[in-house]
């Protein structure tokens, strides 16, 4: 298997905090890979190291076949980054932004204009091409930001929370664009806090928790790890009171129901019990949960964590 990104034992410390505590990654070329984690888990630090912005304190990382510390220039020739805050020039128009990036990427003036027009059309910005970016909506900025990363089709694309702050429609538009990038042959490495985004987009997902990869696999593999169904207790209005994962055995299901039975909410008028398949949310919560109450089946590669989610 050809790897576009390979990290072994990455460590980074800011002050007294270990942001990354031995991170391992292996991303196959041509795939979409999602790094999932809560705020502060180290997602942006991981991207910053892989894109040569920050030096790791320990460990090694290779991107597109080159060491990020020893050969940053070679890595930079093969990557593009769309960071968290839209990296666009607000004073320039969309065309001027794209032409500038094209020139900086080694295109001639004419080629840069041709490529800019092409991308503006593809991202639905042709009508606004001559407007200053300062007048753009959040969704338009994000699309331009992504277009800037595509000015030359580099092998590895990094997207740091590409859809944060976007409305549902803009988000879905962006998803289809990201999907098509991978179809063109690029490797896409994205971070997200949205499970749905990872579920819909990514070939493989890694869950980052406290500076380490706590679980990694396809969406289906991750869901399978949680074991059995989830038992929910809902109140008379259908609101979720308690949900408990089970390990898939009859004994586990009974234990979960007994647990619910001890809850005062179970005796309330109109309270009812549901059983459903686990979602990626359950996996995420199971791996990253800090408040423990009910034992959960162990997740490979991490400590057995416990879960009790009350909404």
């Amino acid at each position: 298997m050809t790897l576009a990104i390979q990290a072994v034992g990455l460590r980074k410390r800011f002050g007294r905090t270990d942001v990354l505590a031995g991170l391992d990654l292996a991303v196959p070329a041509g795939s979409v890979f999602a790094l999932l984690g809560p705020n502060g888990a180290g997602k942006t630090t991981t991207i910053n190291i892989l894109t040569t912005l920050v030096r790791p304190d320990g460990g090694t990382a290779h991107v597109a076949g080159h060491d990020v510390v020893a050969q940053p220039g070679e890595v930079q020739r093969r990557i593009a980054l769309t960071g968290q805050s839209a990296a666009v020039d607000e004073v320039l128009t969309a065309t001027e932004n794209l032409v500038m990036l094209g020139r900086l990427s080694g295109l001639g003036r004419r080629d840069a204009h041709v490529r800019a027009a092409e991308l503006l059309g593809r991202f639905g910005l042709a009508d606004a091409a001559g407007r200053r970016v300062g007048t753009y909506s959040g969704g338009m900025r994000r699309r331009l930001d992504l277009a800037l990363s595509l000015i030359v089709p580099v092998p590895v694309l990094f997207l740091d929370e590409p859809t944060t702050g976007l409305d549902t429609r803009s988000r879905q538009e962006l998803w289809s664009v990201i999907r098509s990038l991978a179809d063109d042959g690029s490797t896409v490495f994205l971070t997200t806090q949205y499970l749905e985004e990872a579920d819909r987009l990514a070939d493989r997902i890694a869950v980052l928790d406290r500076g380490r990869i706590a679980a990694e696999g396809t969406s289906e593999e991750l869901k399978a790890r949680i074991g059995g169904d989830v038992v929910e207790l809902r109140d008379a209005d259908g609101g979720l009171v308690v949900e408990l994962p089970t390990d898939g055995t009859v004994h586990g299901l009974r234990a979960a129901v007994d647990e619910l039975d001890r809850s005062p909410a179970a005796s309330a008028d109109g309270a009812s019990v549901f059983i459903r398949r686990p979602s990626l949310d359950d996996v995420f919560l199971a791996i990253t949960a800090r408040d423990a109450a009910v034992p959960l089946s162990p997740v490979e590669g991490s400590d057995p964590r416990e879960l009790l989610e009350t909404k």
Binding site: M1, T2, L3, A4, Q6, A29, G30, H62, A64, G65, Q76, R77, R78, L104, S105, G106, V152, P153, V154, P155, D184, G185, S186
Partner: peptide, 15 residues
């Protein structure tokens, strides 16, 4: 470390 190969993507030229 496996080498990276691709057909449809390009590297940025030196400026």
């Amino acid at each position: 470390m496996t080498t990276f190969t691709t057909t449809t993507t390009t590297t940025r030229p030196r400026l």
